[in-house]
Computed example of a mutant assay.
Amino acid sequence: MATSWTPTVLFQPVVDLLTGEVLGYEALGRVSGCEDEGFRLLALYAEHDNVYDETLIHLTRLAISRGAFRPPGTLLFINVTRPVLQALLDDSGHRLSSYDGLVFEIPESDHQISQWPSLLVPFVADAAQVALDDWGAGQADPLRLVEIHPAWVKIDLQMTQKVGQDPAVDRLIALLVNWLEENRARVIAEGIETEEQLFRLRRLGIRYGQGYFLGRPGNVLSCCQAIS
């Protein structure tokens, strides 16, 4: 396997499904020159060279740095791991005075999710928000919502693709939206690829989403297509 590779960051818009406005951007790690290969290739190279955690730490710093040039008022969603957050805490040279506008995405499938709340406290105290990522791909355990108290819950693309095809999935999403609204949290649907999915998600009460139908990963100023 060739080991001459450079990690880079792309940004995919997160869109208001009612207005078409860009709410924010998710930072996505990629291999420079092979961006269409997705995160899989980056993970493969990083694991092969035994620099996985170091690569994620570098990507997080790169995302924060480049994401600072996003349009005013928009959010920056960043996937993080426990080693990444610990590195940000330990390295005062990269610690921001405020994390306002940043949303740290943590994986719902993490079997040690109980370790997250204490690690997130200092970032939330500095105005960061928390998103529970890939809900539905892991355990989809409601207790995890109670433990983490996320500001955002991102529905996994596998659930998005079943919307309108499986009544049980539709009911589950509707219940999730209602429960989260009562607890002042919001839902983002990932992997929206068709207009039909978008309309069905809106009918289920989901206000925000991302996916190729809305905008592909690119530079931070990438646009979403208009929604009528």
Results as ranks from 00 to 15, higher is better:
Thr6Val: 12
Pro7Lys: 08
Val9Leu: 01
Leu10Ile: 07
Phe11Trp: 06
Gln12Val: 09
Pro13Phe: 00
Thr19Met: 08
Leu23Thr: 02
Arg40Ile: 15
Ala43Met: 15
Asn50Ala: 14
Val51Cys: 15
Asp53His: 13
Ile57Met: 11
Leu59Tyr: 11
Arg61Asp: 15
Gly67Asn: 10
Gly67Cys: 07
Ala68Leu: 09
Arg70Gly: 01
Pro72Ile: 08
Leu75Gly: 00
Leu76Thr: 00
Ile78Asn: 04
Thr81Phe: 08
Pro83Phe: 05
Gln86Lys: 13
Asp91Thr: 08
Gly93Phe: 12
Arg95Lys: 13
Tyr99Gln: 00
Glu108His: 01
Pro117Thr: 11
Ser118Cys: 10
Ala127Phe: 10
Ala128Pro: 03
Val130Trp: 00
Ala131Met: 05
Asp134Met: 07
Ala140Asn: 06
Ala151Phe: 05
Val153Tyr: 00
Lys154Pro: 01
Gln158His: 10
Gln158Gly: 12
Gln161Met: 13
Asp166Leu: 12
Pro167Gln: 04
Arg171Leu: 15
Ala174Pro: 05
Leu176Gly: 01
Asn178Ile: 11
Leu180Ala: 03
Glu182Phe: 06
Arg184Glu: 12
Ala189Gln: 03
Glu196Phe: 07
Gly205Tyr: 02
Arg207Gly: 02
Leu214Ser: 05
Asn219Trp: 06
Cys224Asp: 06
Ala226Pro: 12
